[in-house]
Amino acid sequence: MNTAITEIERKALYKVIYSRRDVRGQFLSDPVPDDVLGRLLDAAHHAPSVGFMQPWDFIVVKEPEVRQKVKSGFEIAHAEAAAMFSGKKQEAYCSLKLEGIMESPLGICVTCDRSRSGDVVIGRTANPEMDLYSSVCAVQNLWLAARAENLGVGWVSIIHHDHIRQALGIPEHIVPVAWLCVGYVSFFHKTPELQQAGWLPRMELDSLVHYETW
C-alpha cells in the first residue's frame, strides 16, 4: 500500500480543514445514509488514542423524543449561560443560534470510558486527562470526515454532562465528551458564524507561535 500523499490529496485535506464549520441553523431534514454514517464512525474510531486504549463509544440518536430530552438540557444550560453576561453582550449572546439538536436528522454522543484499559495506561501516567483528549481527537476525525462527505456538524457544548448521561442512559463511570448534531446543510458559511457576528475575531497566527521558549 502506497502511503505517500499526493498533491491533490493534500489540497483536499486542507480544503476540508479550512471549510469545516460549526453548524447550527442550516441543517436539512434529509436522512444520513447508513453507509455514510458508517464511514464517519469508522474515521472517528481511527483517531489517535493514548496507550491505544480507544476510550470512545458512539451513541447514535435519531429518535425525536430522545433528542428532545437533550434539547431540554440545552435550554437549561443556555439560560444559565445568558445570565452570566450583561448588557449588550447578553443581548448578542441571546441573539445567537447555538444548536441544531432538533433540526439535524441525527445526533451522535461521543463518550470516554476512562477505565477501559485499567488504572495504568501507557502515556497517561503523568497526565491522566490524556484519555479525554483522545476522545476529542475522535470528535475531530468525525468532524473532518463529515465535511468531506458534505455533511455539517455542530458541537453542542452548552449542556451539563449529567443531563446527557440521564437522557441517554449513560453509566456513571462514562464521561460524555460531545453531543454532535449531524446532517446535510443548505450551505456552509465562508467564515465561522461567531466571527461574522462580531463576537470575536480570528487571532493572527504570528501572535500565537513561540520558538524555543514562551
Rank of each mutant, 00 (worst) to 15 (best):
N127S: 14
G154H: 00
F187R: 05
G107A: 04
A138W: 00
R20L: 13
A146S: 14
E103Q: 07
L132T: 06
T111W: 10
D30E: 11
Y18L: 05
I174H: 05
D206Q: 12
P64C: 04
V50A: 03
R147G: 03
L142S: 04
Y14S: 15
F27E: 03
R24D: 02
Q195A: 14
L208M: 14
Y184Q: 01
H161V: 07
C109R: 00
G118S: 02
E80V: 07
L205S: 11
A81S: 02
Q68W: 11
I59Q: 05
D162A: 14
V50F: 04
A138M: 13
E63C: 02
E7L: 14
P201M: 15
A77Q: 13
L205N: 13
M130A: 14
H189L: 14
I5C: 10
R21Y: 11
S104C: 07
L132Y: 10
V185Y: 03
F74C: 03
S104P: 00
L144P: 09
E193S: 06
G169Q: 13
D119L: 12
F85V: 15
K97Y: 07
A92R: 15
K190T: 15
G123V: 05
A79C: 02
E65I: 08
A47P: 01
I174L: 13
P55K: 00
A145N: 09
E172C: 12
Y211L: 15
D57F: 09
H189A: 14
F188R: 08
R165V: 08
I108D: 06
H46R: 00
D30L: 08
W179M: 07
I164E: 02
G169V: 10
E63H: 00
D35F: 09
R20D: 07
G38W: 09
E149Y: 04
G152M: 01
P192Y: 12
H163M: 12
M53H: 05
Q166C: 14
N150H: 12
V110D: 06
R114Q: 15
V182Y: 00
T111L: 01
D42A: 11
P176W: 02
Y93K: 07
I59R: 00
G100V: 01
R24M: 00
Y184I: 00
R124E: 15
S49E: 07
G123Y: 08
A148F: 10
P33M: 07
R10S: 15
E129K: 08
L208I: 15
I170S: 03
S135Y: 05
W143V: 01
L96A: 10
R24K: 01
R116P: 06
S186A: 14
L200Q: 12
F74I: 01
G152T: 00
R116D: 09
R116C: 15
A167Q: 06
H189Y: 05
E204W: 12
S29C: 09
V153D: 06
V66N: 12
S29Q: 11
D35H: 07
G183K: 05
W155L: 08
P55T: 02
L194A: 14
K15E: 03
L132H: 13
A43T: 08
D42V: 10
E99Y: 06
E80F: 06
V139S: 10
Q196M: 04
L144I: 04
G38L: 07
F27H: 00
V121I: 13
V177W: 01
